[in-house]
Amino acid sequence: MTKIIGTGSVLPELVVPNSEFNNNTFFDKKGIEIDSPGSAITAKLETITGIRERRYIPFDQDSRPLMIEAAKTAIADSGLDPNDLDGIIVAHNAGNILVGEHAFHTVPNMGAYLKNALGITNHEFFAYDILFACPGWLQGVIQAHQAIECGSAGNVLVVGIEVASRMLDPHDMDSMVLADGCGAAVFSKGDNGVISHATFSHANDDIDAIYLGKSNKEDVGGSCWFKMNGRDVYRYATTWVPKVVKKALEKASLSLTDIDMFLFHQANEKLNLAIAKNLSDLYEVGADFFAGKLPMTIQFLGNTSVATIPTLLDMVLKKNLGDFEIKEGNTVVMASVGAGMHCNALVYRF
Rank of each mutant, 00 (worst) to 15 (best):
P12V: 02
S19W: 09
N22C: 09
N22T: 09
N23Q: 15
T25L: 13
F26R: 07
D28M: 10
K29R: 10
K29I: 04
I32A: 13
E33N: 00
E33Y: 01
S36H: 11
I48R: 07
R52Y: 08
Y56A: 05
I57G: 04
P58R: 15
P58F: 12
F59R: 12
D62C: 10
R64Y: 07
P65S: 12
M67N: 02
E69Y: 04
T73E: 10
D77T: 04
G87M: 03
G87C: 08
V90G: 08
G95E: 01
L98M: 13
V99M: 07
G100V: 00
E101L: 14
A103R: 10
H105Y: 10
A112I: 11
Y113K: 05
Y113L: 14
L114Q: 04
L114E: 03
K115Y: 01
A117E: 11
G119E: 12
F125W: 12
F126T: 10
Y128H: 14
Y128T: 15
L131S: 13
F132V: 04
F132G: 00
P135L: 05
L138C: 05
Q139C: 09
A153F: 02
G154F: 00
V159L: 11
V163S: 03
V163L: 02
V163N: 05
A164N: 07
S165I: 03
R166W: 07
D174V: 11
L178C: 08
C182P: 03
G190Y: 13
N192W: 05
N192T: 15
V194G: 00
D208I: 06
D208H: 13
G213C: 06
K214T: 14
F226R: 05
F226H: 08
R235S: 14
A237Q: 04
A237Y: 04
V241E: 06
V241P: 06
P242K: 08
V245Y: 01
A252Q: 08
T257S: 12
I259Q: 07
M261K: 06
H265M: 07
L271I: 05
L271K: 02
L273M: 09
A276Q: 05
Y283M: 05
G286D: 15
D288I: 03
F289K: 10
A291F: 13
K293A: 09
P295L: 06
Q299T: 14
F300V: 14
N303Q: 08
T304F: 02
I309Q: 09
L312I: 04
N320R: 15
F324N: 08
E325H: 10
I326C: 15
E328P: 01
N330W: 03
T331F: 09
V333P: 00
S336T: 12
N344H: 05
A345Y: 07
L346R: 00
Y348I: 06
